[in-house]
Nucleic acid binder design. Structure first.
Lengths: 129, 129
DNA sequence: ATGGGGGTTCCAGTCACAGGAAGGTCAAGG
DNA sequence: CCTTGACCTTCCTGTGACTGGAACCCCCAT
């Protein structure tokens, strides 16, 4: 399979697939003409990566998870540890964003949104609560 | 005021303050020795920027908001529009992160986290649900 | 004069790609 | 056989909002 087919199958852009090879996440073979030739295991890995990235894992996390995936003697505790550390990050981000949403929501509600210059949003940003 | 004092007053790193000057958000004066000299209006602007950034506005949004802040003839509708557009982004991110959290939470709960290799997290990433 | 704590510029790196240029390869159609 | 167009290749640059570091200048106290 060439990169275009793999891109269609996995939903990952060709650019991303090349990048993943660049940083050593996958190692497709090469045809005589220089084209990458992907085996099913490569496609499988890319699907794995796509799902892990969709869950927000960093590339380095993905590297770790792939290594664990391929290690038959892994301890599931190691996987869970990575997942939980990521979960903490996600929840921190959610908390941050919720705080932003709340503050911003109040300000938006308080703003008339008409053609007059008076604006509680700018007042708040300017430091007068 | 020199950059260090301003950094302490605003809580913004000196690097960030220089960067904001670089991209034209503030224009402090210069002393004869080349040091930046910040007037109270500069500090005020930096506080404005700090608060806007804390609400997650992009630098370009900040530029727009500052221009509106300084325009006495602004319409509050213009401010509200920027704020609401940003709100949409925030809510989209929250939705994404909530979805990740939910999925990841289920997987983490299902994982024994012991020394055996069997792991639902890897199973899911590998594509077997 | 020396030391330390300011300040300055400029360059590189971050993260995970995306865009685009310049050029090689392949199958089909005229 | 030639061309066309869809692929593929590498390489370089840019993104956002900074951060780290090198190499250097300035000022005050000892």
């Amino acid at each position: 399979m060439n990169i275009g087919d793999v891109s269609n199958q996995t939903g990952l852009p060709a650019k991303t697939i090349r990048y993943y090879e660049d940083i050593g996440l996958i190692k497709p073979l090469r045809d005589d003409n220089g084209y990458r030739r992907f085996r099913s295991q490569d496609v499988h890995k890319l699907n794995f990566l796509g799902r892990a990235r969709a869950l927000g894992f960093t590339i380095e996390d993905c590297r770790t998870l792939m290594a664990l995936y391929e290690d038959e003697t892994r301890a599931s505790a190691d996987v869970k540890k990575v997942a939980r550390a990521h979960m903490v990050q996600i929840e921190a981000k959610i908390a941050d964003l919720n705080a932003m949403r709340d503050t911003l929501g109040h300000l938006i509600d308080a703003c008339a949104g008409d053609d007059r210059p008076d604006c509680p949003i700018l007042k708040d940003l300017g430091g007068q609560p």
